Simulated scan of single mutants.
Amino acid sequence: MLDDTDRRILEVLLKDSRISLKDLAGQIGLSSPSISERVRRLEERGVIRAFTVEIDPKALGYQLQAIVRIRPLPGKLHIVRKLIEEIPEFCECDKVTGDDCYVARLHLRSIDQLDPVLDRIADHAETNTSIIKSRPIERRPPPLQRE
């Protein structure tokens, strides 16, 4: 479980994961060695998995995003998974319950790119695609407050 200090550390790191340990310690009110140890323990426990860079797909020319529900044809589950892994436009994929086996997110430069990407799995799966118009809520962590 997280204590209040761990939660405060995570809140600060979520705003700026590049903050120095000295500045983090100053914001939390602990010494740099104490903060360093706390961050190390959060990493060891798997609470913090990575310090990463968030890239804006639009800055790289990917103007369109789509959500694709994928239902592999009988006996094709592993083939479809391998194809999804190999197609770089698929940036996320979740295996889900229900009628579909996978829900994936695509980044595309234009709508013209959609059919050629989906055609690569069409012999092995049925797809249902929704174009993303906006993201009212950006990806965010689960609530950090106490249970």
Rank of each mutant, 00 (worst) to 15 (best):
I35P: 12
R49L: 14
K15N: 14
S130P: 01
I35D: 14
D115Y: 14
R140H: 10
F51K: 14
S17L: 01
Q63E: 15
R140C: 01
E138V: 04
P72Y: 10
E37H: 06
D112Q: 11
D115L: 14
S130K: 01
S34M: 13
V117T: 10
A59K: 05
S110V: 11
L64H: 09
G46Y: 01
G29Q: 11
I9W: 02
H78Q: 11
V96F: 09
E11M: 07
I70R: 03
S32L: 01
R7P: 06
R38P: 08
P116I: 09
L114M: 07
S34D: 13
P141E: 07
I48K: 04
S31I: 01
I87H: 10
P74V: 13
V80D: 09
S130T: 12
L42K: 09
I67N: 00
R139G: 10
E86Y: 04
I70G: 04
L108F: 05
P88I: 04
S36P: 06
K58N: 07
I121P: 04
P142T: 13
M1T: 12
P116Y: 14
E147Q: 12
L73E: 04
G75N: 07
C91A: 09
I121Y: 13
V117M: 01
G75P: 05
L30Y: 06
D123V: 04
A104I: 07
D6M: 10
P33D: 14
L77F: 13
A66E: 02
C91D: 04
G61F: 02
S130F: 04
C91H: 02
I35N: 11
L13C: 09
K133I: 15
L64Y: 06
D100T: 07
P88E: 07
E89M: 06
P116K: 11
E85H: 05
L83M: 12
P57C: 03
L10C: 06
G61E: 02
P57Q: 00
D112K: 14
F90A: 01
F90E: 01
L13N: 11
